[in-house]
Nucleic acid binder design. Structure first.
Lengths: 349, 349
DNA sequence: GTGAAAGCGCTAACAG
DNA sequence: CTGTTAGCGCTTTCAC
C-alpha cells in the first residue's frame, strides 16, 4: 500500500501520461477532465499511494484546511470538566468529516499566551479559529477582533457585537430547572452560579430569578452563591450556602454538582431527601451517579459540530453578517430532584 | 499593533534595505548577520507586525513545526478520564515552549479512522506523531510502523520492538500499592485491572501478583476482575468482585475507583472500614474526594512533556536507536486505604 | 478537455 | 557578512 513516500504531482503526471494540471484537477475533483483520463490518473494514484503535499497546497491555494481550537487560560482549570472533552470530540469529528485538520491551542500560562497568540495569527497556519468563550476582558478576544482571521465563539461573548457564536439557551434552561423544583413543591431554592463575569453564568442566574419571579417567590440573596464551574468551586459554594438551609438547589453545571454533593454528604445531608438538586449540562456521568442527576441537557457534541460548520461557512462566505446559533435545552428528570418521591410528576406544560 | 496583514519577506527586505535572505536569517536567528543590520530588520519587523507565512516556510524547509497527537478509537471512551486532558496539557505546553503547533487527531468512528489515517500521513502536514498506546492489533500501530513519519508512543507498545516510547513503571507502582495494603494488614486483596490486552493493564496486574507472591499470599483468581479504565467499567467490575468479599482492593486507575466506590456504597460498604482501596494515577480529584484516595502517583504532565521532547529528538536525530523513557511512581497515602485507622504507619522501607 | 507557465512566500546553497 | 538564485510541490489563469 504505502509505497514511495516522495512522489510529486509531476511524477504522477508523467506516469499517467498527462500534465500536472490534469492530475491536480483529478485530485481536487474539478470538472473538465474526461472520464478515461480521470480513471487512468486515479489508478496511478492508488497504485502509488500518492498524497499531495499539504504545505505546497496551502501555499498555492492560500488555504491550509487547518482550523484551530483555542482554549484560553481562563478556562484551563476547567479542562477536567468532561464538558470540554465532549465538545472537543464534536469539533474533531466534524473537522474530519469536512476534511480539515484540528489544531489545539491550550494556554497554560501567561507565557503561553504571549507566545501562542502571535503564532496563531501567522498567515499560512490556520484558516479560522474556534474560541471557547471567556469573560469580556480576555486578551484573546481583543486579539481576535483586531486580527483578520475568521473565528467563531462558543457561548455569546460579552462585548463583541459583531462576533459569530454558537450557544445554548442558558436562560430558558435554568428557568426550566428552577420551575421544575417549584412545581415539585420546593420554595426555599438556592443556586450555585457560574462565574458572573461570563454570559453563561449570568444567563443561568437570570433564568433562576425569572422562575422564582414567575411564581411570586422573592429571592433570597444569601441563597445565591457564585461558583466557577469547577468541582472544588461547587464544594465551597455549597458549604457557603448550607447555613441558610435551602430545601432545593439549582447548580449551574453538573461538574459543580459533584463537589456540592460531597459537601452535602460531609454535612450529613442526603440528596434528594434533605436537599434536592438540579444541575446543568447532562454529562455522561450524570445519569450514572447515585442518586442520578436531574439536569438540563444541552447538546454538547452537536454544538461542537455546529461550531465547525459555522466557521467553515464564515471562511467561505465572509464574516458578515454575524452568525448566531442558539440550541435548545431539555429538562431530564431523574432522582436528585426528588420528584418521584414528593409527588406524581405530571409534566409542567 | 497588528497592522498590514499581507507583508512578505520581500517587503520587509525592501523596507529595511537588505535582501530577503538577510531577513530570513534574522527571523530564524541564524548567525552571520551584523548587529546593526539585525537591529534594523528587527525594528521593521516589529513596526509592521510581520509574521512569516508558515505554509511557505514548511514547503521550503520541509518542516511544518506541527506535531500530531493521535487518540485512537480504542481509547476514545476514555476521553472523559481526566488522565487524557492532563496528558494533553503537558503535551500542549511543551509544544508551545518548543514553538511547535499541536494537531489533534481524534478517531471517533471507524469511518474517521479510514479518513484520518491517510491524511495524517500526507507529506507536509505533521513532522511527527505522538500516539496514545493501545492494544497490539490496533490499525494505527500498523500504519505507524509502515509509514515514515517519526513517532513516539505513550506506554510501552506490545509488538513494536523498534518503537520509541515513554511510560511509567506500572509494575513497580502496582507492586507498591499492594505491598502497602499487605503491610497494613489486609490479606484478602482483590484487584480491578486495566484491559489485559494492553501492556499497562498487564503490568499493573503483574505488580499485584508480585506483591502477593513476595508475602507468600496465594492469589485468588476470583479476586481478579478485568476492567477497562472507564468509570462504569469500574462499577461493574466491583459488583463482580464483591461476592468474594475482599477486605481490600487495588484498582488500576483512579477513574475506575469512582465507579467502584459507587458500587460499594450501593452495597452498603464504606471505604475504608469495610473495604480498603488503593488506586493508580493520582488525579486532581483523588485528593479531594471523600474519603481521599490512597493511590500511586504518576507524573502525567511531565510524561506529556517528555513525549514531545523525545519526538523532537527523533525528528532531529533519527529514530534509531529507539528511545525508552520510564518514569517512576510514588505511593501517596491518604484515607481510602485505612492506614491511619488500622495502624500507625511506619514506612515500608 | 488539456497543457504551459506563472506564481504562492519562504529556505538554503552558493557566490562574492 | 550579504545578496543572488534556484527551488519546495502545488494551484490557477490562460491559451490552445
Amino acid at each position: 500500500m504505502g509505497l514511495n513516500p516522495k512522489l510529486t504531482l509531476e511524477d504522477i503526471a508523467r506516469m499517467s501520461g498527462v500534465s500536472r494540471s490534469t492530475v491536480s484537477r483529478v485530485i481536487n475533483q474539478q470538472p473538465n477532465v474526461s472520464e478515461p483520463v480521470r480513471q487512468r490518473v486515479m489508478d496511478v494514484i492508488h497504485q502509488t499511494g500518492f498524497h499531495p503535499n499539504l504545505a505546497a497546497r496551502s501555499l498555492a491555494s492560500q488555504r491550509s484546511y487547518i482550523i484551530g481550537l483555542v482554549i484560553p487560560r481562563s478556562v484551563q482549570n476547567l479542562f477536567s470538566d468532561p464538558y470540554i472533552p465532549l465538545l472537543t470530540q464534536g469539533i474533531a469529528q466534524t473537522c474530519n468529516q469536512n476534511n480539515h485538520t484540528l489544531a489545539l491551542f491550550l494556554f497554560n500560562t501567561e507565557e503561553d499566551e504571549y507566545k501562542l497568540l502571535p503564532r496563531i495569527r501567522r498567515p499560512g497556519l490556520v484558516d479560522g479559529l474556534i474560541a471557547l468563550s471567556t469573560h469580556a476582558d480576555d486578551e484573546l478576544l481583543t486579539q481576535l477582533r483586531q486580527g483578520d482571521i475568521p473565528y467563531v465563539i462558543t457561548g455569546r461573548p460579552m462585548n463583541l457585537p459583531d462576533a459569530s457564536y454558537v450557544d445554548v439557551d442558558n436562560l430558558y434552561g435554568a428557568f426550566l430547572a428552577v420551575r421544575h423544583l417549584i412545581h415539585i413543591g420546593y420554595r426555599h431554592i438556592g443556586t450555585i452560579t457560574g462565574p458572573l463575569k461570563t454570559t453563561t453564568g449570568m444567563d443561568r442566574l437570570e433564568g433562576y430569578k425569572k422562575a422564582l419571579f414567575e411564581s411570586f417567590i422573592e429571592y433570597d440573596p444569601r441563597l445565591i452563591v457564585e461558583g466557577d464551574f469547577t468541582q472544588s468551586g461547587g464544594y465551597y459554594a455549597a458549604l457557603k450556602i448550607l447555613p441558610h438551609q435551602p430545601d432545593a438547589i439549582f447548580i449551574a453545571s453538573d461538574y459543580m454538582v459533584l463537589g456540592a454533593i460531597q459537601a452535602f454528604q460531609e454535612n450529613g445531608l442526603t440528596v434528594p431527601d434533605d436537599i434536592a438538586v438540579v444541575g446543568f449540562d447532562d454529562l455522561p456521568i450524570s445519569s450514572q451517579m447515585s442518586p442520578s442527576l436531574t439536569t438540563i441537557r444541552q447538546p454538547i457534541r452537536p454544538l461542537g459540530a455546529k461550531l465547525v460548520e459555522t466557521l467553515l461557512d464564515i471562511i467561505d462566505n465572509g464574516s458578515q453578517p454575524p452568525r448566531r446559533v442558539i440550541f435548545g435545552t431539555e429538562l431530564v428528570i431523574r432522582e436528585s430532584c426528588g420528584a418521584h418521591q414528593k409527588m406524581v410528576f405530571q409534566g409542567d406544560g
